[in-house]
Structure formats: C-alpha cells, structure tokens
Write a protein that binds this DNA or RNA. Structure first.
Length: 324
DNA sequence: AACGCGGACAACCGCCGCCGA
DNA sequence: GTCGGCGGCGGTTGTCCGCGT
C-alpha cells in the first residue's frame, strides 16, 4: 500500500507514468479504474462512503494532476468518483496531496503545537498553517491522542491551568532539552524534509524568544516564524537554542501574515517578538498571561515533586521513539 | 489461536461564512 | 436582499491494527 501511495503522490506531480500495473501507462490504468468504480457505483446506486480504495485514490490523483484542484463537487463527478466533493477534498488534502507529511511528529513540531494551541486553542487549521505538510486533521488527532492522554495520566483536564503549567514548565522545556542534548551529542537532528516546492528562501523573519522574566536568564529556546514578504513563497518556522543549535521546520502559510506583524502571536507574553528588522515588539501585540505565568516560578498548586520523572520523560515519547 | 481492548488515524457530519446568480 | 452552492472548519465517529491476556 505504501508503494501504491508513493506512486499516487508522484503521479499527482505528473512525474511518472504508472508502474507495471499497466503497460500502457497511467491513463489506461485510470480508465480501467474509472470503469471499475463506475460499474460498482452503478450497482450500488448511491454515493460511496467509508475508506477510499486504491482505485479511487488513483482516479482522484490522476484527475487533479491534469485539471488541478477545486470545484470539488464537479471534480468528483468528472473524475468518475461516486463521492461527495467534500470527501474528495478531504481525501486530497489529508492524504493524497504530494506535500503532505504524516507520522513522526518531530519535537520542534510538538513544541509548536503546544505553543500555538496554548495561544489559539482548537484552531487546528490555523495551527496547521505553521506546520507545513501537516494537516489540521493530523494535528487534531495528535492532540486528542497524545496530549489528552498525558493529561489523563496526570489526572487533570487538558484545558486546566494545571495541565497548561505542566506543558509549559515541564513538557516544553524537556522537549528543548532533548533537542539540545541531541545537538550537543552530535547526534543527527531530526530534520523535517521539505517538499521541493517550498524551498524558497524566506526574506523576512519574525522571531519569538522565550524569556525567563523571573530569573532574567537567557532564553533556552525560541520559536521563529520566518515570513516572506512575497506571499508566493513559503516561509518557514524554526526553533533555535541559545547554544546555537538550530532546528527548522519548513512551512507556514505566507498569507498568515505578511505585513510585518508577528505571523504567529505565539508563545504568549513569555516571548519577545522581533519584527523583520529585529525590532522588539512588546506590549499589546503579544498580550496575554504567559510572562506573568513564567514569572510566577512558584505556582501555588504546582509541585514538580508530585510528578514521576519517568512519566515526564514519557511525555515526549514520540521523540524518544525516534531516538531509539 | 482467539478474543478483547485501546491507541492511532482516516473519514464523516454539521455548522458557518462566502460568493455569485 | 436572499437563496443556493460550495468550501472550510472543528467535533465526532468509524475502522484498523497491535498488543496483552
């Protein structure tokens, strides 16, 4: 199935003909597939639902590679798919799209998700804009399975202040520590593979730095969302540590913000934002309670001693799985 | 080997806003 | 102005698969 999918993706980019499935190439294959699907559909006499078949995927990819996406209802009809336009759109965006990445949520992506969710809540599509290749559906699933699981382990609600504190004061720093440790150890840093079409150089940048207002210590990490002034190029987000270790993740929707204001009002007030000229943006532009929370180092009802260290380390299990 | 259970993820549903007729 | 089609979004459900018993 993976090979099939790989073929679909490549075929969607118009780069290859069909594999040995048919000697006459993808057109013949998809024509046969269309006939098969059409016949099956006529028998059923209704719109198909449920999991997509390889044939349906092939039809959809082939049609989009030739005609482009959009106008999903007519696309579904013209492609010979007995699916709703919505279903086609979802299948394409969440699974078949060439630049979609699935699985292996990297530490920096986890960090961004935690950050952005703390800021925006369940605005999955908005969050996904800054995680290129990731779909809102995947981020939503990640949150519901991983993050909510940890909240459950900690016996607190995922939206509770307590859990937010754990995330902010334990989970996220741990993620950064792991990334730093990997960098220092010279281990290979997990790098997000960028789809070729997003390889443009970002011209502008907005940065967000974690500042420990309580101690005045150097920030241990920062989140940067580079924004190109040219909306046609794709900016990228990145994470940096103070010791120079740098992690980057391509992406961000250029339309998220191209006017010099922070594209990600991320990280709450615990962050200083810098515009593309490295002017520090403070105050209302990043209003919120993060700096206050970070400044409050001794949270009244939060004690690290309450938590099992093994559990804490298990929080970034996805990264651990990658490391092992 | 069979069964049950839970996690992960794909897919659907309902709602809403936008836009053109 | 309004009506219908369409696309986007967030919530929810369904399905598959691995693992433990």
């Amino acid at each position: 199935m993976d090979m099939d999918k790989e073929y679909y993706m490549v075929a969607a980019m118009g780069m290859v003909a069909a594999p040995a499935m048919s000697p006459s190439g993808s057109s013949a294959v998809t024509t046969e597939a269309a006939m098969a699907v059409a016949t099956a559909s006529e028998d059923e006499g209704d719109l198909r639902r449920g999991p997509w078949t390889a044939q349906e995927d092939m039809l959809l990819v082939d049609y989009i590679s030739k005609h482009g996406e959009g106008r999903w209802n007519s696309l579904a009809r013209c492609a010979g798919l007995r699916r709703t336009g919505k279903s086609c759109r979802l299948r394409w965006l969440n699974y078949l799209r060439p630049d979609v990445r699935r699985g292996n949520i990297t530490p920096e992506e986890q960090l961004l998700i935690l950050e952005l969710h703390s800021r925006w809540g369940n605005r999955w599509s908005k969050i996904a804009q800054l995680l290129p290749g990731r779909t809102d559906n995947e981020i939503k699933n990640y949150w519901r399975t991983r993050v909510q699981k940890h909240a459950k382990q900690l016996r607190c609600d995922v939206n509770s202040d307590r859990f937010r504190d754990v995330v902010r004061r334990v989970w996220m720093p741990r993620l950064v520590e792991r990334m730093q440790a990997e960098a220092v150890a010279g281990a290979e840093v997990p790098v997000v593979t960028a789809p070729a079409r997003t390889m443009s150089s970002p011209a502008g940048a907005s940065r967000y730095r974690n500042v420990d207002h309580a101690s005045g210590a150097e920030p241990i990490w920062s989140v940067a969302a580079n924004v190109s002034p040219d909306a046609s190029t794709t900016p990228r987000s990145s994470l940096s540590t103070v010791d120079g270790a740098h992690f980057s993740t391509w992406g961000a929707d250029a339309t998220a913000n191209v006017n010099g204001t922070p594209p990600v009002e991320c990280a709450g007030s615990g962050f200083l934002a810098m515009d593309r000229h490295d002017h520090v943006l403070q105050g209302d532009e990043l209003s919120g309670s993060w700096s206050e929370l970070l400044a409050a180092t001794n949270l009244p009802d939060f004690e690290l001693g309450d938590l099992d260290d093994n559990l804490l380390w298990s929080l970034d299990d996805a990264y651990l799985q990658q490391s092992c």
